[in-house]
Amino acid sequence: MSQTEIILDRRINRRLRTKSNKAFDIVIAIFCCFMILTYLLPFINIIARSLSSPNALVNNRVSFLPVEFTWESYVYVFSDAAFSRSLIFTAILTVICTAFSMFMTVLCAFPLTYDNLKGRNFINILIILTMYFNAGTIPNYILMKQLDLLDNPLVLILPGCLSVFNMIILRSFFWGIHESLRESAELDGAGPFTVLMHIYLPLSKPVLATLALFYAVGRWNGFSDALMYVTRIDYHPIQLKLYQIINNRASIEVAAQEGFTSPVVAEGLKAASVMFATVPILLVYPRLQRYFISGVTIGAVKG
């Protein structure tokens, strides 16, 4: 084969390859669009149902667009005293829980970044062991009974207030802060507390925001602790309330009083209830997304 022939051959090859590459790119892009649809359509369906009239729902006329548009379902759900109380209770609970959890996580992670802290290994082991062995549902339930926490809103705050996983993420971030910063502050006579407040915390704002969002989402989504430990309706968080509505174990009272008890009509109310629980997550999601990837990878490496 002569030189020119080889070059020609290569060119044809390249052209062929880019052509098949292009086709492949498009196939993958179509696949991505398909994925996006399988994720969006269920949400669009729920939104459409929550905004449609009972009449349209009864006749199965709602697919992906609201039929006979109305805000009625939202109004009924929100004007239900038990539901709105649960919504407000969960919002307050989430704020308190997040603040307290962050306080505990910082208190736990910061001292453990000091290499020369005596007893550090022992404390580390004590903490890590709890990741692999848990007492179990019943012994934990008995503990809440012993501590007289059953039916006490504190039971939704204290038992889960410190996540080892989140603590490890924060500790890894603290490790990444250069020691010379700490040492120079210490030379100026700063104690650990000052170092924490003036160097470590200000430098770790992004990771602190991420962890706070993790805790907040966790509390907002928390279900089983309330199911097991709380019977008083006043302290039912939103997920428990939603579970009861979805499974017909509770009705939206205002709607029931006005005669909307037929199961199909309740569908619109269910859809609206789902939306009330989902929207707060959607609101924080963009912020959450900015940081969670680094969080996951750190946790996976060190955990």
Binding site: A29, M35, L40, I246, K270, A271, Y285, F292
Partner: peptide, 26 residues
């Protein structure tokens, strides 16, 4: 496209199983 796909398919991880079950039942 890659970023949009990722954003959307990561989302359900942050929804509770109660919400997912509510959507699935409907």
């Amino acid at each position: 496209l890659k970023r949009i796909t990722q954003t959307i398919i990561y989302l359900p991880h942050f929804l509770s199983w109660i919400i997912i079950s509510g959507i699935a039942f409907q």
